[in-house]
Amino acid sequence: MKHKVIIGVFLLIFSVLPLLLLLLQSIAPGWGWGELFPSAVSVQAWQTALGDPALREAVAVTIMVILFVAAGNVILGVPAAKMLAYKHFRGKLWLDNLLFLPILIPMTAVAMGIHFTFIRAGLADTWLGTALVLFIPTLPYTIRVLRAGFERLGPESEEQAKSLGSTTLQALMFVQLPQIMPSLRSAVFLTVVITAGQYILPVIIGGGTVPMLSLLYFPYSNSANEAVVSALSLLFALLPLVVILLAEMVMRLVFAAAHRR
């Protein structure tokens, strides 16, 4: 009981309080030093933020990029994760490490190194180029999470399905993926929040012409209008939730459609 209270209080201070503070700040434009709680509330900051055409465009572009990256992560990550989970081959250890390392390498280095090549290839300053580099900080996580899911599931599931006459793809769609849905969800969640939070990659590769939401955040945060920045901050939390809901719907539709065939 004592432990439960300690954890509860911690979670409250750690997670709920900052969220509430952002919420309050976003509806209390005049709230400043000296006032423990705001004296007046208004939705003016939200109106300012949502009324900004640049921001509206950024939201649309960001959602598009995130959806592209998330879908690509699943499509590319699932087979790779499955292979790493079940197959044994020479050099697997090395492959494993190589696929993990991008998590550790500073994205600034990657962006600087690849920038010129992207310019020459015509990928710089395009949303496709930006989306492509965003696979680098996300795909390693997707592969790791999905691989753990496949490992927990074990190869028996696929063998059973195949012994009943289904193809590899059918076994994957009808038997394996539905069973590793929790891992799939975690992978999509991580992909979405990492993608939404990237700054240096879209800045350098997108060159400012691909208006990801994170690019707007920095000038806004210097604007000293704390209510608007808070509203924008909350938008960053809402965005992943919206995309995750969309992803969940898409995944269900895909499974349902695959079932009907």
Binding site: L11, S15, Q25, Y217
Partner: peptide, 29 residues
């Protein structure tokens, strides 16, 4: 509840730290 900070990008975390811990922040108040 523990996952709440995960949905915010790092730079929003930085902004929150300013809101709370800066000299004109909420803790100061």
């Amino acid at each position: 509840l523990i996952w709440i900070p995960m949905v915010f990008p790092h730079f929003v975390g930085a902004y929150l730290v300013i809101l709370i811990f800066s000299q004109s922040g909420w803790l100061s108040t």
